[in-house]
Amino acid sequence: MRHIVLGSSHYTPLILTAIRESDPTGIIVILDRSRETAETLANMVGGKPIDGDPMDPRTQEKAEMEKADIFIASSDSDAMNIKISEVAKKNYRIPLVITIINNPANIEEAISRGADYVISPSSPLQSHIKAILSTDKWVKTTTPEFFGIDIYLYRTVKTSALGITLSQLREELRGFEAYVVALTKTGSLIRDPTYELREGDVIILVAPRGMGEIAVEKIRSLISRIQRIRAEMESRRSIYP
């Protein structure tokens, strides 16, 4: 296989290592504006350095873009990565074009310009922070676009967990394009649908992309219904001790 990797961002050495490990005999062309940088990176993986302005057709010719099987745009400028990926796809018809996006806000633009895959290495950061800080909030995890799924996680707290079973959750989602599984606090898969969730257990909701939020809303509504009923029962108990 013939790979072209553009740019010298923080991610480039990791990408080069990954390519070499998965394709030990493949040709790797490293394209960068700086000769020194291109050579240094190329030496890491026995690649071929090409220097020049990546948007200049003469540089593209030197890199023999028309022969590439895989093109990965990995500079630290999203604008550059998006534009050169568009050129790689539309002008050179490279079969597999991967665009690295530094700022997740640019993902949609990269997809619309024709990249086959868009990778945003910093995207998981936000969901990780939310997952750490949120105990009673649903967290949407980051999955690569091409999987076409939404995954939401919820760590149960005392008020939401009491008495709710996996079968109740699944019943609530009947007719919806979504499915839930759950793990105990210690990470074991909960197989028994009548198991009552406890504080710290994790609910995992999987849905086709774009369908997850509606399913999450259904479960939120189930939890609040149960909490309301429970509160009413508690108040009756306090009136009629």
Binding site: D76, S77, D78, A79, I82, N102, N103, N106, E109
Partner: peptide, 15 residues
């Protein structure tokens, strides 16, 4: 045409 600044550091005028 809208593009978001690639690296969200301040100051990022040059970026």
């Amino acid at each position: 045409k809208v593009i978001y600044q690639s690296i969200l550091k301040y100051p990022g005028r040059g970026i």
